[in-house]
């Protein structure tokens, strides 16, 4: 048989233009016809660590501080750390390869447990609004922030990374790996009216690297009013 490769649970029906191999993961860097956004990108290959400890403050993964309140996130260097609850946080290596898993027993490599998707670009949050009642536009929250709750009827972790004008912006989403195909189908269906298309890792890196290390804007996002029917018929 051919070379042994890993396989993502997400297989977009699009032509992969450029693929790179990383730890036996064939990572699609670029698809043809990615369009101008919004985009959905499969990041399931990104290393994800679960860290649980009675006293999380004693840990400094990659030398970084863990946010203290549940729902808070810190996106520093190439790593996003999400505080899930009193004793647990998630560490996602979004922009660079992960080092070896630290030896402390609190860490578990959960890369394989969940599918990780990025949904970003023009109208990305309008797409999300069709799939979840979670308040991604909450003016009292600063990006990046985490919400744990239902997204397309499945329990998910949703990190709102950016909020721009109107419904522009972007989020990261994880749910149990087994649901990957159903979730992607639901997202693509909801995004069809906005021209949502699959894109490769390069598109994600270009967007996300601009956000790393930046605290979110403190302003409440301006909510674009959606005129849903023409005024003068």
């Amino acid at each position: 048989m051919k070379e042994i490769q890993r396989q993502s649970p997400v297989q977009f029906k699009a032509d992969a233009q450029k693929i790179a191999m990383r730890d036996n993961w064939p990572v699609v860097l670029e698809y043809s016809n990615e369009g101008r956004g919004p985009f959905v990108v499969d990041l399931t290959h990104k290393a994800k660590w679960d860290l649980q400890d009675k006293n999380l403050a004693t840990h400094k993964p990659l030398g970084l501080d863990i946010p203290t309140l549940p729902g808070a996130c810190a996106f520093q260097k190439s790593v996003l750390i999400n505080r899930l609850n009193r004793t647990q946080c998630a560490i996602w290596h979004l922009l660079a390869d992960a080092p070896a898993l630290p030896g402390e027993p609190g860490y578990t490599d959960v890369t394989e447990s969940t599918v990780l998707l990025a949904l970003f670009g023009p109208n990305a949050l309008a797409i999300a609004e069709k799939l979840t009642a979670l308040d991604l536009m909450d003016p009292q929250k600063q990006t990046p922030f985490l919400l744990q709750g239902p997204f397309s009827h499945l329990p998910c972790q949703v990190v709102t990374l950016e909020r721009g004008h109107g419904f522009d912006g972007g989020l990261l989403l994880t749910c149990s790996r087994g649901y990957a195909r159903s979730m992607v189908h639901a997202i693509l269906d909801a995004g069809a009216e906005f021209g949502l298309r699959p894109a490769g890792e390069q598109r994600f890196s270009a967007w996300a690297s601009g956000l790393s290390g930046k605290p979110g804007s403190a302003q409440a996002p301006s909510v674009m009013h959606l005129v849903t029917t023409r005024e003068n018929l």
């Binding site: 396989q7 649970p9 069709k130 397309s152 009827h153 499945l154 149990s176 790996r177 087994g178 649901y179 990957a180 195909r181 159903s182 979730m183 189908h185 639901a186 269906d189 909801a190």
Partner: peptide, 11 residues
Amino acid sequence: GANHDMCKRTP
């Protein structure tokens, strides 16, 4: 509504 069948598939 959209009524997607959200189900799990094995690898």
